[in-house]
Amino acid sequence: MKRRDFLIFVSVTGLSPSIQAREDNRFKKEFAKQKPIIKAVQDHMFPKQSNIPSAHSMQAIEFLLQTIAHKSYDKDIRTFILEGARELNRREKGKFLSMSKEKKEKSLRAYEETEYGRVWLSRIMTLTMEALFSDPIYGSNMQEKGWRALDAYGGYPRPKTRYLEDV
């Protein structure tokens, strides 16, 4: 399966530095727009009162932003994350955020029925799991709460920086 098949608007490749800077700006603006939708989906998937910490308590949305904005993250999938959120809200005629828990469940399960929606939801879930279970240096999994919930801990030595960057 080609990952580009999931993109409705294929992103432009090979940008010059000035266009790149404009792109980064555009990404931040677009992220700010889609952030509530993505956060609502994360909160629905990883609620409070579960055996694992909630997305909200682990600040998984901040992790998600920092992760997909980092240069190590696939730029096509970055575009797809935003696009899928826009698509979800479009399907629900802009009403996703104001829905009850039950309606959100129905909406997301319907979205999951489409291949596009299934892949997008799976991406959001993976990014949220990365937040909960990565080393705390990445800003989530505070006090190793994600690890403690599963009684599974990262090995030693632990990273001193993010993404193997120099100290």
Binding site: S72, E130, G154, G155, R158, P159, Y163
Partner: peptide, 20 residues
């Protein structure tokens, strides 16, 4: 310098080239 950072070593292309 080797740590057990799952995100870096097992989930991203940091010690191999970016595929683009």
């Amino acid at each position: 310098e080797f740590s057990k950072d799952e995100l870096s070593y097992a989930r991203r292309d940091l010690i191999t080239p970016n595929l683009f």
